[in-house]
Nucleic acid binder design. Structure first.
Ligand SMILES: [Mn+2]
Ligand SMILES: [Mn+2]
Ligand SMILES: [Mn+2]
Ligand SMILES: [Mn+2]
Lengths: 216, 216
DNA sequence: CTATTTTTTTAGACAAGACTAAAAATTAAA
DNA sequence: TTTAATTTTTAGTCTTGTCTAAAAAAATAG
């Protein structure tokens, strides 16, 4: 597995989480910040290696083997993110770029020992579940904050957008994983909502509410 | 800095530790397990980047900038080795290959936080000194065990060969960093010697004695 | 000081992974 | 159901880092 192959597998895996059926070449190109022609070359190679199924003009789909490899890279990514936050005092908006590098380090022992060292964490700093050794991910029944109705309550358990700017906004507003949130008011016009966290009430836009996961 | 450039710099830096003056193309090729023609290409590139001085047929020498970059890679390599042994229960013969990968991770913050997390260690698991942020290495006045005479004593502080097979041999013989050693007898014929560690006496060959550093 | 051996560099080729431009297949519109 | 727009693939080029084979320079020997 080259670095590039691994990044493609990961991208396709993540797109599959959202979209049904075969993944389009263009969708991969967009996620990978590359051109469709480059994607075509790569999916041919991955197909020959048995990591995805592909027919010309019909899109791609990961095989079981491909899913396993991808889940393992994501496992490494998220464990390293935990390490950076828990042990090296990184903030949750600083970890992603470094984890993008660390996820490609090849050593079974390293990642399993790291897992143990961190106390077998279930989620990364952004609330995303950490796959186990066998590539199984605990499928969460969490829901986006934007779907809650007036007077509904829940606990913040994750973020969909892990960009540094979004995470910094959350920090500033005092929005963090584990906090209880209640929807005070919803504005139908622009889907903004007033929420309460720890007795403080404030407005958030739909865009914000659309990127926060809640456990009811 | 690409991965390959970094590995060349590191190799040249290590050869410079042993050899005086300009480093020959062949010496680099041997250390890098590559061909001289490939080396010529690379040193041209590194030369253009101001990382080493090079004139055709005259060999190469790292610039200050080149030395700084190389020392920083070695700093990362050795800090990661400490991490693997101290925190993740690796043995000293298992760490090198993983550190070869980890040394290329790019993040100032990562390596400085790691340094702090480990308690600012001075040496790696093989007794090699860890360069500081500015690329300074504490030059040790240590001496190879093979140079000791009969009845001389010292403390084992490092190994020259860090190969897994050598380190496993040392483990088996009970030879470890920090132990006191006394030369009981030297055989002029083959330079083997009888040594005492913790009241136990045994023979070691010149090859072994040539790869163990002693502080007198 | 010339001849031979060794070292180093050049020339040309290759694989991986990217890109551009153009062709082919598919999908959407009229 | 033809035509137009979009998506996807092919063809050909480029860069990085590697290789082999051959040429050039330097070192060694006689
Ligand atoms: Mn991430
Ligand atoms: Mn994450
Ligand atoms: Mn090492
Ligand atoms: Mn070491």
């Amino acid at each position: 597995m080259t670095l590039s192959e691994e990044n493609y597998l990961k991208a396709i895996y993540h797109i599959s989480d959202v979209c049904e059926g075969g993944i389009s070449t263009n969708a991969i190109a967009e996620k990978m910040n590359t051109k469709a022609s480059s994607v075509t070359d790569m999916i041919k190679k991955l197909s020959e290696k048995g990591l995805l199924n592909y027919k010309r003009y019909k899109g791609s789909e990961l095989t079981e083997k491909g899913k396993f490899v991808a889940a393992n890279i994501i496992r490494k990514h998220r464990l390293w993110e935990v390490f950076l936050v828990e042990k090296l005092n990184f903030t949750w908006d600083e970890v992603h770029d470094v984890a993008e590098q660390l996820e490609h380090i090849k050593s079974e022992k390293l990642i399993n020992q790291l897992d143990e060292f961190l106390g077998f964490p279930k989620r990364d700093p952004h609330g995303d579940p950490i796959p186990d050794k066998d590539g199984n991910v605990s499928d969460n029944a969490d829901v986006l904050l934007v779907t809650l109705h007036e007077n509904e309550k829940g606990i913040i358990v994750g973020v969909k957008d892990s960009s540094s700017s979004f995470l910094k906004y959350l920090d500033k507003q005092g929005i963090a994983l584990g906090k209880k949130v209640k929807v005070i008011d919803k504005e139908p016009f622009d889907n903004s909502m007033k929420i309460r966290i720890k007795k403080e009430e404030f407005m958030i836009s739909q865009q914000i509410a659309n990127n926060i996961y809640i456990k009811k």
